[in-house]
């Protein structure tokens, strides 16, 4: 799915590039139906794979309303988006993790002033095969599984079989979030276990979990379907909570995170209008329709 979206995004960006070559953006007619007074422009959005479907949906709807604005969206990972932002090849970076100190330093050196706003929230759901008898795990158990300390489902009350642990690769914001939030919850030096398999896309994890009864993996809420079973997660104090829009929104689901859009300085002009539109009820309705969590 996300691969298809990425291909479409590529095609769109290529055709937009060609179109831009034909008619300079500055002279393109202002045909925005709702607010013709607004300037047109082109916005390049790059970043998190988790957010790429969401960002594409935003861009499509926004471009229908403001026909003089062209938005190209591509994914690749938060790190890729931030790198593009630092190279000044992206106007808006979608990041599913805050910028690291090293990246902030780079931004400073490049004369950029990154401003991140929260545009949606995401619950990272831990998924297993639907036939797996286990329905809930504690944060500690997840840390032990992904840290390579628990390797058999038997130890968790399941069947006597190896646990196939699937993780996103290290170019993913979800990788960093899950590592810092779960794997390193007790020990700041902990790493993913040696037997963990790193897959390049969230869709790959969703597909592999859907067909492999021994697998466990994590994906964003948007990737859940009835082919995987999402596990309820228990904190040390609370009860087990299933990931859903409602539980992420009321902060009862523990493995959730904010999703950011990062711009250089306070957003101005068309970018400001676009971000305001994303935060408006219309933009947030799209968030809900894609199974992410709106911020209100």
């Amino acid at each position: 799915m996300s691969r298809i979206v990425r291909i479409i995004a590529l095609l769109v960006s290529v055709s937009l590039f060609l179109a831009a070559c034909g008619t300079p953006t500055a002279t393109s007619p202002t045909t925005g139906s709702t607010s013709p007074s607004l300037e047109g422009g082109a916005i390049v959005v790059k970043g998190s794979d988790t957010m790429v479907n969401l960002a594409s949906a935003w861009a499509e709807d926004y471009m229908i309303e403001r026909q003089n604005v062209r938005i190209t969206v591509s994914g690749g990972g938060s790190g890729i988006g931030i790198a593009a932002f630092l190279n000044k090849t992206a106007d808006i970076c979608n990041n599913s993790r805050p910028l690291a100190q090293e990246e902030l330093d780079k931004a400073k050196a490049a004369g950029l002033e990154p401003v991140s706003i929260v545009v949606a929230k995401d619950g990272v759901s831990v998924v297993v095969h639907p036939s797996n008898p286990i329905g809930e795990l504690s944060m500690e158990q997840l840390a032990a599984i992904f840290g390579g300390k628990i390797t058999n489902w038997k130890e968790l009350g399941g069947a006597d079989s190896e646990i196939v642990v699937l993780s996103r690769d290290n170019n993913s914001g979800t990788y960093t979030f899950f590592k810092e939030h779960i794997v390193q919850m007790k020990d700041k030096k902990a790493e993913y276990g040696l037997m963990v398999q790193f897959l390049p896309t969230s869709q790959g994890i969703a597909d592999e979990v859907a067909r492999n009864p021994k697998a466990i993996g994590y994906v964003g809420l948007g990737y859940l379907s009835d082919k995987q079973k999402a596990l309820a997660v228990k904190t040390a104090t609370g009860s087990a909570v299933l990931p859903s829009v409602a539980t992420v929104l009321d902060n009862s689901y523990p493995v959730s995170r904010p999703l950011f859009c990062t711009t250089n300085g306070q957003p101005k002009g068309v970018i400001q209008d676009y971000l305001a539109w994303i935060l408006s009820p219309k933009g947030q309705e799209i968030v809900r329709s894609l199974d992410f969590v709106p911020i209100q």
């Binding site: 990972g77 190279n87 390049p200």
Partner: peptide, 11 residues
């Protein structure tokens, strides 16, 4: 292939 896109340039 996986990591080069994410690596900090020159890091």
């Amino acid at each position: 292939a996986i990591e080069i896109n994410n690596a900090v340039f020159g890091g």
